[in-house]
Nucleic acid binder design. Structure first.
Length: 289
DNA sequence: CACTTGACCTGTCCGC
DNA sequence: TGCGGACAGGTCAAGT
């Protein structure tokens, strides 16, 4: 799904469009996509929107919050005139909304409609009492630092990665308790930027490599946001636009293509059963024993 | 305890 | 063209 950059793009868009509006109706087309009593939210005002890791929060009159996780294939798309203004509809948008992947439909007080589409049905929306949010042992309260916030530093990165000294660097970066918001695309990209082979054990990293990886994570995520996110298959912004980041990626989904830095052939491997891309020339492998 | 694999779903793409 | 298998942006639970 959307990783941090994609969810951030959605957040910024929803902030502009939703704050101050009331929720007129919530229609649930797939029961498992929505947890909680949707009637509680009807007629109430949207007051605040935030993102933590890859989770979106839409606060309602400061008492409830709609938590949204898009997982692998979730989309939040506005319908209505604004979608097509000045733009070409993306391929996904050729199908009118709702389509067969639509799981939940939000109707807002200004008649605009927000669709939650999710081909694979892994994503979820939960309506939760805000007071219960903080004291739960929910994973939201067990997340690692936000990489684009001031709380993040190379020392924190080092400390948290070292919770798993024997695991490959890239696998550990995907652990949301270690760092928030990194997913499979940006993990491969950050390792490339830091010239670290994703298979290297955390314990092999030097302080200089932690510093470089720290900068590389931030650069990869910011570049993702700059280019509107990654749209391998599903991601579109709420306006229906695809992201262009993968046109600028160094390794992700570029197997057998020449490295943009050294022209060596990019390899695709499996790490913890996830597709992983690297340049074996730029990224040095340490076989540690 | 640390780490890996399977499950959750649907759709697409690739090789035979 | 058809069919089976692998694979896809994430996260848990169960298994080793």
């Amino acid at each position: 799904m959307p990783e941090l950059p994609e969810v951030e793009i959605i957040k910024v868009s929803l902030e502009k469009k939703l704050i101050g509006l009331n929720i007129a109706d919530i229609e649930i087309l797939n029961k498992n996509s929505f947890q909680g009593n949707q009637h509680i939210a009807k007629g109430k005002k949207i007051t605040k929107i935030w993102r933590k890791a890859k989770v979106l929060g839409i606060e309602i009159e400061n008492t409830y919050v709609l938590l949204i996780h898009l997982k692998m294939s979730g989309q939040l798309i506005f319908s209505g005139k604004s979608v097509f203004i000045g733009g070409h509809p993306t391929q996904d948008m050729f199908k009118t909304l709702p389509n067969k992947s639509t799981r939940v439909i939000f109707t807002l007080s200004n008649q605009s409609i927000l669709y939650f589409n999710d081909q694979r049905k892994f994503g979820w929306i939960k309506l939760v009492d805000l007071r219960k949010l903080n004291d739960s042992k929910d994973f939201l309260n067990n997340l690692g630092p936000e990489p684009l916030s001031k709380e993040f530093s190379w020392q924190i990165l080092k400390k948290n990665l070292l919770k798993h000294p024997n695991m490959p660097v890239k696998v550990t970066m995907l652990d949301q308790k270690v760092i928030s918001g990194i997913g499979n695309i940006y993990a491969s990209e950050a390792c490339f930027l830091a010239k670290i082979d994703p298979r290297n054990k955390v314990s092999t990293l030097t302080d200089n490599q932690y510093k470089l990886l720290y900068k590389s994570i931030i650069l990869a995520l910011k570049t993702g946001i700059k280019y509107g996110g990654s749209s391998k298959v599903h991601f579109v912004s709420p306006e229906g636009k695809k992201g262009l980041f993968l046109n600028h990626a160094f390794v992700y989904s570029r197997d057998n293509l020449p490295c943009k830095v050294c022209s060596h052939k990019i390899e695709k491997i499996k790490l913890a059963s996830r597709g992983t891309y690297l340049c074996p020339n730029c990224q040095k492998l340490y076989n540690s024993f």
